[in-house]
Write a protein that binds this DNA or RNA. Structure first.
Lengths: 205, 205
DNA sequence: TAGATTGTTAATCGATTAACAATC
DNA sequence: TAGATTGTTAATCGATTAACAATC
């Protein structure tokens, strides 16, 4: 990774490349080209070469990219060449689904705790976890040193909980609540709101 | 809505504006400004004015935008001034969570059916729905005239199911499977993959 | 009226694409 | 070697911002 500032939009595409490459590796492929990868993810070959070349020269003229090597490099760049601990806040249906989801462990993430403010849910088991009380969340997150949270509380509670997460030292929030969050500059937020995503498509119907 | 082609990137922001405006309306506000709306969603006032002005003159100098009026206009533009029927494919945890989710009905969507290929799940009830067999899915979707699907099957099955959905006349797919889908030009896909979203943030940690 | 805020233009900034020398 | 494909440059294209006249 070099010194100049890489645009957000490029960083946003790297996980998509990584996902496609890991799929290629799983089906036994050894090398690929910007052309082939581009067809797979729906992005032009030129753009893929340009994106990747921001970080180094990972390909070979004539033969393309070693899939295994490029996976290693992308994982390094994205800092998922390690495991990140993640907490889930909100033990509703979505919290359940995330805790049970099998797709985190080979992408760099481990869920380590789930919180809810509903005393009826606190203490219950979800998969191998015991639902913890949001009242003790801040200290618990600090203690665990967790930097990433997934937020699945109702919209009305989301900003308050986000503030608590920031206070606890969380630096990345995956927000499932259908509301824009206000957080300091050094905290990143990604939004997942199925209705918003659907509304991005109805325009074209 | 006028004749010239509106960029995708603008269409993508409209649902975020709409969501913020609906929230403002709920807390009793009557008017807002590009400045205020921009602070709410984290976008510059100039950009908001520019985006909105692509579709008409919906504001008033000196006073800003009528929230109710702008909501109406955005709903028209996005074609969510009506209800869209939606099917869910895959009756796992995510399928369950979507069927139970309360956040669709006031955003323009109604779930009308859920499908799975697992005979053990077919016939079971989820909320008010009976899980239907994917074997009969194509005809059923045609019969219902559904144009929108949410895809929550395993990655290995996603492309095959997507092809079936396209064959059934579906034109918009919200894909929860962690894989890029290949679909015709006239079919839109939006991707929700929590691991990918998290990996977009770890770079900055 | 005075203050506020839009809609729009022009300028700036940034991203994508096309093309090709380098080289495996 | 001949063919393929990268990394990179320059050109093009598109998006964002700043500024302000118009006007509520």
């Amino acid at each position: 990774m070099n010194a100049r500032k890489i645009p957000d939009i490029i960083i946003g595409r790297l996980p998509v490349y990584l996902r496609a490459l890991q799929h290629m590796a799983e089906i036994g492929l050894k090398t690929t080209s910007s052309q082939e990868l581009g067809e797979n993810v729906g992005i032009s070959a030129a753009q893929i070469r340009k994106d990747i070349s921001q970080f180094g020269e990972f390909g070979k003229q004539g033969t393309g990219y070693s899939i295994e090597y490029l996976i290693d490099k992308l994982r390094e760049i994205l800092k998922v060449d390690r495991y990140w601990d993640v907490v889930v806040v909100g033990a509703g249906d979505m919290g359940h689904a995330l805790v049970n989801y099998q797709g985190f462990s080979d992408r760099g993430f481990h869920i380590v705790a789930i919180f809810d403010n509903d005393k009826a849910k606190v203490g219950q088991n979800i998969s191998k976890f015991n639902v913890e009380d949001t009242d003790t969340m801040i200290d618990r997150i600090k203690e665990l040193g967790v930097k990433i949270a997934m937020l699945t509380v109702p919209a009305a509670a989301a900003q308050v909980v986000a503030d608590q997460l920031v206070q606890a030292g969380v630096r990345a929030i995956l927000n499932y609540a259908p509301i824009s969050l206000n957080v300091p500059n050094n905290v990143k937020v990604q939004y997942i709101d199925p209705s918003t995503h659907l509304q991005r498509m109805t325009y074209y119907l």
